[in-house]
Amino acid sequence: MTSIILIFVLQLIYVPILTLRTIFLVKNMSVAASSFGVLEALVYVFGLSLVFSGHQTIAGMIVYAVGFGVGLYIGSRIENKLAIGFVSLAVNLLDLNEELIVVLRNKGFGVTVFEGKGRDSKRYQLEILTKRNRENEVMSIIEEYEPKAFIISYEPRKFKGGYLVKSMKKYFRRQNEGHQSN
């Protein structure tokens, strides 16, 4: 019974590590991905050695599989809380909402406005790039000011220049100056 509980606990540790390693790898964060890879391999080998120790039972194998599934759920929840990376939102509006644009900009979001021609009339699109951990905040603001907006959210892989990059550089410059004066 102890080995079955240990197998389950190991899966609850292993799979979130696997999930985070994969995410860090996809986001090109090689050092973090490598570190999680080492931990993943250690837990994996130890867990498999318990399952295939010669005393394998159907219950042990089922617990291994269930632990894997629960671990995936936990890993995805952890990743959602960390919200690593950036998100780009394309917000399509029927009318130009200057108040929404001002509110978004005052909250620190870079907003680019495009005007286009739809089937029946002019349309407007706001393009917003922000950190993933602020995506729900942006969505709430848009919902409050434009409940009928059509929004597409996606994760950009690479970007260069622009408002967000400039503001990040200023932030890191201020952080470094603060650490040097201490």
Rank of each mutant, 00 (worst) to 15 (best):
F159T: 11
A41K: 03
Y14N: 02
N136S: 09
E143S: 11
V45S: 00
G60F: 02
G67P: 06
E79Y: 07
I62H: 09
I142T: 07
R134T: 07
S76R: 09
S49C: 02
F46V: 01
E135F: 13
G110S: 03
K169V: 15
P147K: 03
V63F: 07
E115F: 12
L129D: 06
K170V: 12
Y163G: 06
V15W: 03
P16L: 01
N80W: 03
L164F: 10
G85I: 10
F86Q: 05
E99I: 01
E144P: 01
K107A: 07
L126R: 12
V9Q: 00
L96C: 13
E98N: 11
R21T: 05
N133D: 09
K169H: 12
V63P: 01
E127Y: 15
G37D: 05
I152D: 11
F52A: 00
S35C: 04
V51Y: 01
E137Y: 05
M29L: 11
A33P: 08
K131F: 09
L126I: 12
D120G: 12
L42G: 00
N133H: 08
S140L: 09
P16V: 00
I4W: 02
N176M: 11
R157C: 13
M1A: 01
S140Y: 09
Y124W: 14
V87T: 09
F86C: 03
I128Y: 07
V31Y: 03
T112I: 05
H179Y: 15
E98R: 08
G162L: 08
M29W: 05
K27L: 07
Q180D: 15
Y145N: 03
I152Q: 13
P156E: 12
L89R: 06
N80Y: 09
L126C: 14
A65T: 13
R105L: 04
E115G: 15
G116L: 14
I101P: 02
L10Y: 03
S49H: 08
L6N: 00
A83G: 02
F8S: 01
P16E: 00
P147L: 04
N92I: 15
L129T: 12
R21C: 06
F109N: 01
L50E: 03
M168I: 14
S121E: 15
L48F: 06
E144A: 03
F24R: 02
F172H: 14
V111A: 06
K160Y: 13
Y64F: 14
P156N: 08
S76A: 11
V165C: 07
K117F: 12
K158N: 15
E127R: 14
G116D: 12
Q125D: 12
